[in-house]
Computed example of a mutant assay.
Amino acid sequence: MDLDLNWKPGSARIHTWIAMDKYGHLASMLNNGYGWLPSILLDIPNIKEKLSDLCEFIDGDSSKYINDIDKMGSYLIDLYSSWVYKNYDNKKMIIDELDNELKCGNRYSDAVIGAKMGMFFFQGLEGHSKGEDYPVGYDGETKMGDYYRFIVPTVFLTIEDIPIPLRNYIVVSDTLDFTKDRLLDNDKISEYFPRMYHD
């Protein structure tokens, strides 16, 4: 299904987009099939292809842009999915696994987003049914599609690290602070992120 203003979340419609908070911190946003994308983003012609270019750069898979970024920082796990990590006894087990992936050089590890790229990582709550997935460590009420803060970097990526042509596909919030805001209401995604980045 094309990414446009008629697009709606669904379990097979997994997309990643990049967001900036009011202080310039950058985050990778994975909707996990159930999270909305900002309407300002969906209104851009051919945004699916342009988002692919941006995300491939972030992942180090781009044939158009070289990514030699290494912030040489670390990462923290904030909230995590009760559904994805249902077989893990505690947060330490998740950290140990991610630390091992970093040590082994797994460049697709979620930890790379924080430690190497210096980005926050938010994910949409998923699961097979309502209430099956919730963010462990969060006391408030949540629903499928809400974005929870999974990875927190210790050193931050800046917009100057992103190739100029790709900056135009980053959505910006004038109210959020990724260092403090841990849970984003899925119904308000377009309110949180009303505009695109521009120099």
Rank of each mutant, 00 (worst) to 15 (best):
L79H: 04
D99F: 09
D59M: 13
V172C: 15
K103P: 02
E56R: 01
D187W: 12
H128R: 11
N87C: 06
K91W: 08
D177M: 09
L37Q: 04
T16S: 13
P194H: 01
L42A: 13
F178W: 14
D177I: 04
D70G: 00
D96I: 05
Y34E: 15
P9M: 01
F120R: 03
D70M: 00
D174L: 00
P135A: 13
S81E: 07
Y134V: 08
I40L: 04
G73F: 03
Y192A: 09
A111T: 06
K86M: 12
I159A: 00
V171Q: 07
H15W: 14
K92D: 13
P135L: 06
D187T: 14
F121H: 08
I18D: 04
I58R: 00
D161Q: 07
E49G: 04
V136M: 05
D2T: 15
I69K: 01
K103C: 07
R149M: 14
D181S: 12
S129T: 15
E141F: 11
P38H: 04
T179R: 11
D199F: 02
D70T: 02
S28E: 10
M119Y: 02
L30K: 02
D43T: 10
I162F: 00
G118A: 10
W83K: 09
K8Y: 09
L26S: 02
P38R: 00
D99A: 11
K86E: 08
G10E: 04
Y138S: 11
E97L: 11
M29I: 07
A115Y: 01
P165G: 03
N90T: 10
Y88G: 09
V136L: 12
K92E: 06
N46S: 09
A111P: 01
G10K: 14
R167Q: 03
D181H: 05
K116P: 01
A19G: 09
G114D: 13
P163N: 10
G145M: 04
K188L: 15
D96S: 11
W36S: 11
I66R: 08
S62H: 00
N87D: 09
L157W: 02
M72S: 08
Y197C: 00
M20F: 02
